[in-house]
Design a protein around this nucleic acid. Sequence first.
DNA 1: CGATCGATTGAGCCCTCTCAAGAGAGGTGG
DNA 2: CCACCTCTCTTGAGAGGGCTCAATCGATCG
Lengths: 240, 240
Amino acid sequence: MATVDPSLVAHLPLFAGFGPEELGEILREARSLRFAKNSAVFEQGEDAHSFFVLLHGHVRASKTTPSGEQIVVRYVAPGESFGVATAIGLQRYPATATAVDDSVALAWPSAAWPRLVAKFPQLATNTLQTVGNRLQESHTRVVEMSTQQVEQRIAHALLRLAKQSGRKVEHGVEIDFPISRQDVAQMTGTTLHTVSRTLSGWEQRGLIESGRQRIVLREPHKLLVLAEETPGESGPPVRP
Amino acid sequence: MATVDPSLVAHLPLFAGFGPEELGEILREARSLRFAKNSAVFEQGEDAHSFFVLLHGHVRASKTTPSGEQIVVRYVAPGESFGVATAIGLQRYPATATAVDDSVALAWPSAAWPRLVAKFPQLATNTLQTVGNRLQESHTRVVEMSTQQVEQRIAHALLRLAKQSGRKVEHGVEIDFPISRQDVAQMTGTTLHTVSRTLSGWEQRGLIESGRQRIVLREPHKLLVLAEETPGESGPPVRP
DNA sequence: CGATCGATTGAGCCCTCTCAAGAGAGGTGG
DNA sequence: CCACCTCTCTTGAGAGGGCTCAATCGATCG
């Protein structure tokens, strides 16, 4: 099998601080896998056999509650690592990863992680930063869900998706993978109905343009203004 | 100044895998600090000068939004590390840490982190697990806020606090630090009024016993049942 | 060209928030 | 040691944002 070209991945956060030789040694243990659109990379609860770096495509990480409700944890963009359950001490994947587009990822056996980290401690440091960033993002989400109305949360979610995975098109910025109203609802803690109504409203006002699993931000700035509006603005109580 | 007794902290997650000698070397760089009840350990936005391990007391980590609303990120129990901004690549603290009780913490200068990690890579691995756990907890919170009613979220929050920092008392388990209705509201994304009404209801039903900044769970099991009740139970939509 | 999946939209309700008052508990200073 | 003051908690009334239920439409794909 062809090994991965080190120069293609050298700039990724996971590999920061490594020279070509070390990188080669790490990459030698990885396999490159292809996942068809809508196929599962791994399932929540499954044994965490591998960890991944996404090379092409997009992957959705989602959690399902015991009663069957799903929420979207995040979308993985090319260059990001995912499925790092083993690194944070988990035996099983805490979420399901689904390719939302035809995707390609590097995969390492989880069993290799302890050895790799022992030899290349920088891997742990790099992963620590990545996981730290995710923690910040998750806290941001908690704050938004605690303090903002649905419309603002949806606006923030779309702006983040556009920033992370936006593609410039004629009339604005398009989110570069298929995303449904239901997906947005599961990212913002609301229902697909409310998302649909909200997007319809924005579309009429010319802020966005959308279709089946497709959203284009035409006026990102106006959307940002809308996202930051505070309905009950007046400097709420601060702990003394 | 008296250095810290290694045997007292050897079992903490941050120090897992270290021998007495290494531990001594690490602890030599730490100072032990006392924080009076209601004093700030550090403030959100401040330069991340130190990272900490809590020895005694309890610390609340909270975030304030630009418009002044606060949410409680978590409560730190003895043995946990906090303020690890530097480790995850942040220059400034992303939250405010406040001692809710008279507290004692070990503090290391953030500047020492890179050197310590270089010499003791296990520190990074241990911290990675800790941060990973926090990420899981934060995701759990997102899931709860997305799928559960306020009453269930409050029940879950109290059960977690009791598990983490509960103290057995005559009539049940008491949360072992001062906690107001407002605090609970800021943990669950609701208002102090709703928390007050909810707790009043539970108190009348004998599930809890409470007073000023004081909550005792009398019937943890019944509270758990209540927490897991799914109002709209019927197996909601699952992605095919 | 039919079938399936995603999107739209209306009607009605209810959980929770907002607004408002007031009472009780603790702490503090004279 | 008492009076006062502040902080926390309680409770009522009313409103409304978003959910639920329901039906239809449209588009994409086999």
